[in-house]
Design a protein around this nucleic acid. Sequence first.
DNA 1: TTAGACAGAATAATCGATTTTTTAATCCAC
DNA 2: GTGGATTAAAAAATCGATTATTCTGTCTAA
Lengths: 222, 222
Amino acid sequence: MNKPMQLSSTKASSSIYDLLRRDLVGGRFKAGEKLAINTLKEQYQVGLSPLREALNKLAAYGLLIQENQRGFRVPKLSREELDDIARLRTELEGMALERAIAHGDAVWEADLLAAAHRLKRADITLDKGEEWERLHTHFHRTLVAPCGSVWLLRFIEQLHDQFDRYRRLGPKMPTIRQELDEQHHELVELALQRDATAARALMDDHIHKSYEVALARYQQHA
Amino acid sequence: MNKPMQLSSTKASSSIYDLLRRDLVGGRFKAGEKLAINTLKEQYQVGLSPLREALNKLAAYGLLIQENQRGFRVPKLSREELDDIARLRTELEGMALERAIAHGDAVWEADLLAAAHRLKRADITLDKGEEWERLHTHFHRTLVAPCGSVWLLRFIEQLHDQFDRYRRLGPKMPTIRQELDEQHHELVELALQRDATAARALMDDHIHKSYEVALARYQQHA
DNA sequence: TTAGACAGAATAATCGATTTTTTAATCCAC
DNA sequence: GTGGATTAAAAAATCGATTATTCTGTCTAA
């Protein structure tokens, strides 16, 4: 693995859970890799108990595999799983978007515009793209936020993290991102127009395009 | 809370995680209750570390709320959440059932018949209904098992556990269960006939009836 | 009388050390 | 040599004790 160190934390206030989650989603651990607890302890400068509790939470969340008495392992990646995640994302986020368009109020509209704008303005080269990633996640979360289902939002978040394990393989490529960025703004427009059908269709296409990026990354990841 | 003790474990081999999960789903802790870790330690006869790791996993799974530096709490119940869970169950399990009917093979058909039969034969008075609950969970899991999506199955399982926190409030009432039991067999029939549309409609109705039971329990739970 | 500060008790979180289990290497019998 | 048991090393899991935090009741000052 390439060392994450404690440096990967921007905010000193972040918990070990958040740091590990970010590093797992960001691909700083190899898929299938076995985590050496004592090494992690040193790299993240934390005690054993908080570390183990974080690892347990991440395993329950699906970002780690816990093996009987043999520690924690980063889940393998597979074409089948990527397809599964993309398909479910399409269905769940489509569902959530329709509901959000039905229930979202004026505050939501404002939040959406703000989130899209900040995403557009984000400096993609900054901090290895972490800042862009943060804003991107926030945009998608804002989009479906007023769907009215806590559990649906929870599942969508989880799928996003899993999807990003594929999408964020390898180096950053700002080329394709251009097209995806435009879709973000179109999504906002359709949401403001309350055109649920068109918005959902665009969302389907958006996820599909992201899927193609993720698939390409996965296939050349050796 | 009414003491769960270690007695609530049938199999001595069960992990503290499984025991706690069962007791949380089975309603042996009051909703909103704060868990006293030292008490749990004695009641379940486990050490602090394994206990805390189990609690952390359960919090990530959604059966507990973890509050900053103030320990763990059993999530509150609400009408809104019950509605949310029931609605999502309808959508996700319907989706999974359609896919299972499309992909399930002969082994699945046999498993289904077996699971339905065992459920019917189960002695509902035995072990406070725990055995029936186990078989009931297994039947529903079997029904959707070949849907082809690991993540969908995971979410459905999670929603089942959450739903059961409502359905299993208060004492057991075998009266309404009769009707639900019949639907299990009808579901098997439609699955074997590969009638996805009818099966899905019946599943919708089945979840709706269960929802009415759960709602009634919730409303009289004071 | 009451709001706020303080002290003591209770509880949660963390640490360092120990125990258990797994993994790897070595040895011996065949 | 090869396969299987034995043992040494490594790692994971757990334990007991310590530290930090929150909670609760009391006291004081306005």
